[in-house]
């Protein structure tokens, strides 16, 4: 009981900061200590960060595998795609989208950029409802690209120059290797049309990433195909974000602190499983909720963290001075 109260009252901001920092160091520099977590990680642990990465983002091998010639892909040898997916799922099921909110190095970088903005006292930007609805679809477009472009390569409709298309567009490819002093990705590859288009777009998206995440909290996560991919499997996870609609007063505190502007977190009083496709499971909503038990995190059906008045008071700095 004491432990539970301590968790419910924790300073989530600080906990996340240190957790994210540790995860960042592990994933970005762990390779130097010969740590190898495989190639099916459900987070942007970028494979282009060759000198430091402690494991590889699943989207890289996935795109490689899907680009095999069709006769191989659709033969018993194609099972290897499934085995990669299986390992991805094992990783994912354990933590669900908390991979985004607590581990993803690219997410962490965005949070650091946000911290910088906050230091400068500049207001964050938000999308309007209509913008949100439209932009929210972009991640599915990326997901389709990263599945169907490789398939088209395997079917010989496209040349290999279009290989690993999403990685070429992803800002992680350019940004994460920087932390190991590797600038090799900061080029536009003129070797072929495909490479040129992809790397130029990638350069553009990286620029957008840097500006965007300064103005908008978790700017890129909104477009992240990994998030969309996660969502397909999120129901399988043992890690759940739950809501008790009856206890909710719809005060909107959770919605307002949400980096991803997820409105149903406040307005939906019917759904029990409140994880949405844009969610990064950062748990800020749970921490900001003043209603006892209205929002909670369950692991294997056991509540590990829930909204409490005491926790709210502590995090808001409202404790009475004795």
């Amino acid at each position: 009981m004491k432990i539970k109260a301590a968790i419910d009252h924790m300073d989530l901001r600080r906990f996340r900061f240190w957790f994210q920092l540790s995860a960042f160091l592990l994933l970005v520099y762990g390779g130097r200590l010969a740590i190898n977590l495989g190639t099916s990680l459900p987070t942007f642990s970028c494979g282009y960060n060759k000198s430091g990465t402690a494991g590889v983002c699943y989207l890289l091998p996935l795109q490689h595998q899907l680009a095999q010639p069709w006769e191989r892909l659709f033969s018993p040898a194609g099972v290897m795609v499934l085995s990669g997916l299986g390992i991805f799922l094992l990783w994912f099921v354990a933590l669900n989208k908390a991979w985004c909110g607590f581990i993803c190095p690219l997410g962490t970088i965005q949070d650091w950029i946000t911290a910088l903005r906050k230091k400068m006292g500049i207001r964050y930007s938000t999308y309007t409802d209509e913008q949100f609805k439209k932009l929210s679809l972009i991640k599915y477009v990326f997901l389709l690209i990263l599945i169907f472009v490789p398939l088209a390569i395997g079917g010989q409709f496209l040349s290999h120059d279009w290989g690993t298309p999403f990685c070429q567009l992803c800002p992680a490819r350019m940004i994460i290797p920087l932390f190991n002093g590797d600038f090799s990705q900061w080029v536009i590859d003129f070797s072929s049309t495909g490479r040129m288009v992809l790397t130029a777009l990638g350069m553009f998206i990286t620029g957008l990433f840097l500006i965007g995440s300064f103005l908008k909290k978790r700017f890129f996560c909104f477009f992240c195909p990994m998030g969309a991919f996660h969502y397909i499997f999120s129901k399988l996870s043992i890690f759940k974000l739950k809501k008790e609609g009856d206890k909710c007063t719809v005060c909107g505190d959770c919605y307002r602190v949400c980096d991803m502007q997820i409105k149903p977190i406040a307005d939906d009083v019917v759904s029990k499983d409140i994880l949405m496709d844009d969610c990064i499971l950062c748990l800020k909503c749970v921490a900001s909720c003043p209603e006892q038990g209205a929002l909670r995190v369950d692991i294997l059906g056991k509540t590990v963290f829930e909204s409490t008045k005491g926790g709210f008071v502590k995090r808001m700095g409202l404790e009475a001075k004795k």
Binding site: Y124, D253, R256, K284, C289, P290, M316
Partner: peptide, 20 residues
């Protein structure tokens, strides 16, 4: 119902108050 603030600047405090 209580006000919950994410970033303790005018822009966020005033909006937080409005929402509450």
């Amino acid at each position: 119902d209580m006000v919950s603030v994410d970033e303790w600047f005018m822009y966020d405090m005033v909006d937080a108050i409005a929402d509450r």
